[in-house]
Amino acid sequence: MRSEVQWRLCWENELQLSDHVELCEFFRKTYGPTGEFNAKPFEGSRSWAGARPELRAIAYDSGGVAAHMGLLRRFIKVGEVDQLVAELGLYGVRPDLEGLGIAHSIHVMLPVLQELGVPFAFGTVRHALRKHVERFARYGLLTVMSGVQVRFTLPEARLDKPPIRIDDPLVIVLPVKRSISDWPTGSIIDRNGPEL
């Protein structure tokens, strides 16, 4: 039987060292089974993988951190258009709580997105999560796009890797203050920085 979760919305500067350490452990356990490389960024007390979020939605239960979603406001370039978004990412849910999911995380974030006044929330997920996000998209809250390349920088400049990476993920757009018909068209999105 699952215990009830309590969501906490907190700005990055409200987190204590103990929060970062607990989140690191959560991300290593959550991302580790998807590949050793995926857990590697969460060493020591680092609780982010690429860009550091400015706001986090963290679910807790009797077992500790149950789920997490980060938010970062930024301008991305969609085709030729600079677009303000609240990027959602750094998403994870403890394996024993499957079903808590992205839908709950987004619902917790919705009031904050409204307050921030951003026109859209934006995020990317692996193709393996297609069925998961499309279930949520059926309710008309978000749009899932494929066939759009996303270009971003690595979190650190390295001598052994190119500084830019291009992926072909599923792109998720959530209209907040504008209609989805106002989303710019383009076959490539530039994050102009590391992914969240």
Rank of each mutant, 00 (worst) to 15 (best):
R46D: 05
R46H: 06
S47C: 14
W48E: 02
W48C: 02
W48H: 08
W48I: 00
A49T: 00
G50C: 03
G50N: 05
A51L: 07
A51M: 08
A51C: 05
A51V: 04
R52G: 05
R52I: 13
R52E: 15
R52H: 13
P53L: 00
P53V: 00
E54N: 15
E54T: 15
E54P: 12
E54R: 15
E54C: 14
R56G: 13
A57K: 11
A57H: 09
A57W: 13
A57S: 14
I58L: 15
I58T: 15
I58W: 13
Y60H: 15
Y60W: 10
D61F: 00
D61K: 11
D61N: 15
S62R: 14
S62Y: 07
G63L: 07
G63T: 06
G63C: 02
G64N: 01
G64W: 01
G64P: 02
V65C: 09
V65G: 10
V65F: 11
V65E: 11
A67M: 10
A67G: 14
H68K: 09
M69I: 14
M69K: 03
M69D: 03
G70L: 01
G70C: 02
G70Y: 01
L72M: 10
L72N: 08
L72A: 04
L72P: 01
R73Q: 15
R74A: 05
F75S: 05
F75L: 07
K77H: 06
K77Q: 12
G79S: 05
G79V: 06
G79F: 04
G79H: 04
E80L: 09
E80C: 06
E80D: 14
E80A: 10
V81Y: 11
V81G: 02
V81Q: 13
V81R: 12
